[in-house]
Design a protein around this nucleic acid. Sequence first.
RNA 1: GCGCCCGUAGCUCAGCAGGAUAGAGCGAGCGCCUCCUAAGCGCUAGGUCGGAGGUUCGAAUCCUCCCGGGCGCACCA
Length: 611
Amino acid sequence: MQDVKAPLRHALKTALQALGVEPPTAVPVEPAPKGKPGDYGTPLPFQLARILKKPPPQIAKELASALPPIPGVREVIPVGGFLNFAYDPAYLVEAASAPPAPFPRRPGKVVVEHTSVNPNKELHIGHLRNVALGDAVARILAYAGFEVEVENYIDDTGRQAAESLFAIDRYGEAPGEGEKYDHYAGRLYVRLHQELGQEGKKAALEPGIRAVLKRLEAGELRNEIEKILRAQLATMWRLGAEYDVLLWESDIVREGLLNKALRLLKATPYVFEPEEGKYRGALVFDTSRFIPGLEDPYLVLVRSDGTATYTAKDIALQFWKMGLLSGLKFRPYGTQPSGRPLFTSHPEGEPMPFGRATATINVIDVRQSYPQQVLKAALSALGREDLAAHHVHLAYETVLLEGRPLSGRKGHVVSVDELIQEAVARARSVIAEKNPDHPDPELAAEQVGIGAIRFAMVKTEPRRQIDFRWDQALSFEGDAGPYLQYAHARAASILRKAREKGLDPAAPLPEGAAAKATAYEAALAKALLGFPEAVEKSAAEPTPHLLAAHLLDLAAAWNAYYNAKENGQPATPVLTAPEGLRELRLRLVSVVKETLRQGLALLGVPAPEVM
RNA sequence: GCGCCCGUAGCUCAGCAGGAUAGAGCGAGCGCCUCCUAAGCGCUAGGUCGGAGGUUCGAAUCCUCCCGGGCGCACCA
């Protein structure tokens, strides 16, 4: 896939220089709107109107005559103040006829932290958005040329983990038949909270919970946490999300990273212990210089009872991620479904080069914007504005369920496992109905079910609230994962049949084949050529929804191509097309298939060969 | 009250480093399987881009104010 806009921009700059105008740094070039002549166009003449003191249409004409020949451009068409370019279809098709290639490597390392769910109960659809978003962003960045490290923070010394373990111990009940361990822990956690709600129970149970908390901090109950964590990981892996390293909070505390971080901060003028007032005896961070406009800019790092706040631990983790602190040890944690190894921090491990990031992305919901700002402020407090500028909080809005906020207490939640089961069952029945001879219905059902769920979570802009509705999330029509998967399977089917006939879609195009390209092929080629830019934009934001939107456009262009008719007859048959044109179309279909596969992979959506 | 985010078609959403008659999907209506998978395609209907000012040759996009909704403002996170 080659860039057709770059030569065009270059030619425009050359023409501008010929006209004695300093070219802008970014020359706008966009596909021409439907119904307008040409394939691409630029509004450049409007921007020059002020400088040249001439009307845009006149500038467009002058610019047109000053242009050097542009590769593939058949005609330069002034359209009012726009200047459009009609391409030779053969050129567009040739430009699109190689599958997209990964981007060149970029310097530095990006650490993406996502999931980081409390190891105390099963995942629900709120967590799902985090996993889907984080995993997609990590994949997109890696494809876009960044070195990416995916970290999953395990808060094993938190209150919630302690409560689940306490509940398991207290009720002494075994998991139900076939009950996943995280669901079991979650069930007893909920039961504990019911009991805590009863009169006088809280005081009676509190010491027990505190005792568990102490043991967790000492790392004594790691195996108990692991049982829950392993069950959660099974869900993440089934979704297709994978990680490089698990970071246990107890390890971070044990390695003294927290104290090291606090020591660094205490050496700045912004962190101190007030001698009077409401914060007397606590260690606070005055963020006013970094976060203006707060009514109370003091943030407690260490409470007056000596315990550290979560934010303080988070700052320590952030410092570690960016190489300001060292000390964690690691060891292998096993191999994930794709074969990618997973590591974990561990007291008995050995040093490994995790962390040391030049940029960090935290995938975490918008309600935590303030503490995320504090992370940047802490970096700034150390004088590391450079690092602060490279920390991104990928804030996403919360997920509603049928219009109402999720609520564990009111039972208004859906677990991810439950959702997957439902989606796969639904896919299974659609396959049985539409393709009863499917060679592997179980595989396809899993792919379609997972794909529908994951796509639903990433197609919307992160900062918009998602209202999860069963009928929409499991929809297999329209703007949905299965629509893209279907387009992919359709292309795969043609390629399969071609190979059966002895044709090789990967073979070089025969001499003169490209010249047979029509407007149909050109339109499809243009859709394909937008892929690298969509990836680039998605990586830069970062957000997967831009790539998702482009893939929907590409699939729509491909489906339209597939269905094109003239006088009631198929206008664009592939396998039965005349020789030359057939090879050309086959090549395009193969690039469509590969581009969709790649794009879907970046969103974590499987691409079935048969549906 | 202060701060951040969101108001685009009946519903769910793209578009927002200013550019061409504002685009999809769902829903509604009409059509397309003797043709490579109809989970698809085509056509029709449907919009004061929350409102008012402003900047600009040009504003859904930038600025200000207002209205509506969400979230955050603990020695929680």
